[in-house]
Structure formats: structure tokens, C-alpha cells
Design a protein around this nucleic acid. Structure first.
Lengths: 208, 208
DNA sequence: GATGCAAGCAAGTATTTACTTGCATCCCCC
DNA sequence: GGGGGATGCAAGTAAATACTTGCTTGCATC
């Protein structure tokens, strides 16, 4: 059934661009290259269609795991954070709409919360294992550290479009966040390989 | 002119609850206790009204400053972060809507970016002064540290409603974020005064 | 070729929305 | 007391929206 998937994909695209109220059945039908009546025949109502579209999108998250026994913590975290960051950035339009409509339509936007909640737990548990292995100080609550790294990735993915000046370059953002968290945890971090020597320390002096 | 302000306040309230498309002139008029026609006579159009309402709200931000010469860094940052966090939390509904509609109506939602951008700069410059004063390691880029603290406050304020389990209790959140950042910067932090002794280290072990 | 199902197409319905018009009413200032 | 400006009220308009109905067309299976 190819047509159903095409409609779902078009719906999530239009929803991401215009939100629930802005995602008119006309627009979705046009985006899917399908007659408007087909939407109602296949999904019953606009709400059911968009609900299915969001669920369909959030379902196929390829959940990436952190290693059960920590090795090179900074490298492992950087890879993981980079993938989470990329995922959030790809879904940013939809996530923004879901967040903004959570209060009005909790049953459909709620699915978007499961991903971050799961990822936070994954990260928190990993950091706990790192502490247990004696690789990090026990003075920092892993739950807080996990929250902060997740928050950094999240806010970066959401805000980079609107306020590019307050975030590091996208290519190295995840790594830099991980390194700060690692420092807080007392994990020894090797100095960054920067293109221009000396750029790593006090890189951004105040402009004014 | 009391009536104009009453309309603006009602408009921003309805906008925060329902977004641009959901903020119908009927709803705004009802919330303001005013005839619908008055909206058009006073502001011309719905778009102009909501634009004015958002600008009016974001304008009266009482900008809190960090001290020009750093003293007790953790205490100063905690106070500042707490105020920013409170502010973000009070405006969270409106911020969510602005973020989600930024792509569709950049001219009106754009005003919401100025606050965070300014706060980030304030924080980054402060951290730079802390480094210059020899109170913190120079190995961490102040811009990254500022981003991460701002991100933590922001994501907390936005996400706490939907995912309360992944954030620390609201009363101590700002302080905890500040302490982690301080650790990363190599600032000596005094151990937290917790209600139950021992709760500060390894406070949240994995549940499963 | 007949049958049945899935999809397109055209048209229509009831509701909502932004916005307008015309008139009555109130209140402040002179 | 009278005039003017601001506000309320009733009604209406044009457009958009979700959703329905009736019919045609294509296609695959028997």
C-alpha cells in the first residue's frame, strides 16, 4: 500500500510547516498528489490522519545505544550526541509544532516526548556506569549531567535557525557540549584538534 | 488608555494558549471583555494586534545584569539563572508558540529571540571576566559554557510540563545547572546543603 | 468480458473566520 | 445642555474549512 505512506509523509511535512490548524486537508492532498476525498476515505478525519502521521514518523526512530561497558567515554558520548543532535535537527519543525500544540492536543503531540525521555534515561544510566567504573567523579548527579547534555542538544537543534550566533558551528557542536560535560564529571579530555592553533582556548572574546 | 492594555494582555494570553491561527478575534474580544469591533478599530487587523501584543510583552523584560566584577561566582550565577529560568517559565506558552510560528511569521515571532540572545551575551561576557580574573580555567570556551547553561534553563522551562521526570525539582534546578557548569570551568564549588545527608552524591541511581 | 474495488472528480453543505457597515449609546469637555 | 469621540450592538459579506454525496474511471481478478 504505497499510497497510504505517501499521504502520511505529505501530512507530516505539511504539519511540520504549518501546524495542525494550518495543515488543511487541501494542502495535504496537494502535497501528496492525491484527491482530497481520498484522505477522508482512508483516514476518516483530519485529526486521525495527522495523528497517524506523527505516530508513523516518531515510530521509526532508530534508537542508538550507548555501550554497556564504557571505554573511551568522550568518543562514545560524542558519537551518540551527534546522532541525537542530527535526529533532533531533522525533526525540528515537527517537534516545534508538537511542543506548541501539546496543551491543546496532548493525545497526538504526546508521542514526541517518548524519544527524549528514553534518550535521557539511556544517557543517565550510561553516566552512572561511567561513575561506577571509576572513570568519573561521583560528585555530579548523572541525572543532572544527562539533562544538561540533552538540553544543550535540544536547544541547539531548535534555536540554531533563529539565533545562529549563540551556538558553536553545527559540525562540532555535539563534541563541544560533550567535552564540557566531561570536564564537569572530572573525565580527562584530550585537547581539541583545531584548525588554527590557539583557537581552542579563550576562543570567543567578548566583541564589545 | 486602560482599554488598549487590557486588549493587549488578553491577546497575548489567548495567543499563548492557542497560537496565531487559534487566537480568533472572537476569543480575544471575549477574553478582554470588549466588543470584537473594537479590536479592529483600535489595531486595524488581527495580525497587527497580535504583533503589538507580543512586542508589548517581550518589551517589558526587566533585564537583570551580572556583576561587572565577579565575586562569589556560583552565588551570582545562581541568582541570575534563577531569574532567567523563572522568566522563561512564565512565558513558556508564548515562547513555544513563537518558536513554532517563526518560520511562518518571522516578523512577529522574531522579537522573542532578542531576549535570549541578549542574555547569552551577558552570560558569556561575565564568564569571560571570571576567566580574566583568574577565577576559572581558560580551557573552556565561555561561549560554549554560556550556551549550555542557557540551553539547560531553556529546555527545562519548555519541557518540564511534558517530561517532568527528566528534570530536577524546579526549586533547585537553576542552582544545580550552575554548579555543573562551575565544575566544568574549574570553579571550586562548596558541597550542596541537602535536606537528607548523602543525597547529593549519586542521588539518582538507575531505576532498572 | 463481467465484477468489484479503489481512486478521481465535481458539486454541495454547514460552520467558522476576518473584517465592514450603520446606528444607538455613553461620557467627557465646553 | 450640547457636541464629539469612543464604544457597544446587530447584521452582513466573502472566503476558507472539514466533510459528504453521487458518479465516473481505471485496474486487477475471475
Amino acid at each position: 500500500m504505497l499510497l497510504r505512506d505517501r499521504i502520511l509523509e505529505a501530512a507530516v511535512r505539511v504539519y511540520g510547516a504549518h501546524g495542525f490548524r494550518g495543515a488543511t486537508t487541501r494542502r495535504i492532498a496537494e502535497a501528496a498528489g492525491v484527491n482530497e476525498v481520498t484522505l477522508f476515505r482512508t483516514f476518516g478525519s483530519k485529526a486521525a490522519l495527522i495523528d497517524a502521521a506523527i505516530r508513523n514518523r516518531t515510530a521509526r526512530e532508530d534508537a542508538q545505544h550507548l555501550p554497556a561497558v564504557p571505554g573511551d567515554v568522550v568518543a562514545e558520548l560524542t558519537a551518540w550526541a551527534g546522532s541525537i543532535h542530527g535526529h533532533m535537527r531533522r525533526m525540528r519543525s515537527m517537534i516545534r509544532k508538537c511542543m506548541s500544540e501539546m496543551e491543546e492536543r496532548p493525545e497526538m503531540s504526546g508521542a514526541a516526548c517518548e524519544g527524549p525521555t528514553w534518550a535521557h534515561k539511556e544517557l543517565r544510566d550510561y553516566l552512572h556506569r561511567v561513575q561506577e567504573a571509576g572513570l568519573a567523579s561521583r560528585d555530579v548527579d548523572p541525572m543532572i549531567a544527562a539533562s544538561m547534555l540533552m538540553s544543550s542538544l535540544f536547544a541547539d537543534a531548535m534555536g540554531r535557525d533563529m539565533m545562529p550566533s549563540i551556538y558553536p558551528p553545527a559540525s562540532s557542536a555535539a563534541e563541544q557540549y560533550v567535552r564540557v560535560i566531561a570536564r564537569a564529571l572530572g573525565i580527562t579530555v584530550t585537547p581539541r584538534a583545531t584548525k588554527r592553533p590557539g583557537a581552542s582556548r579563550a576562543a570567543s572574546a567578548p566583541a564589545s
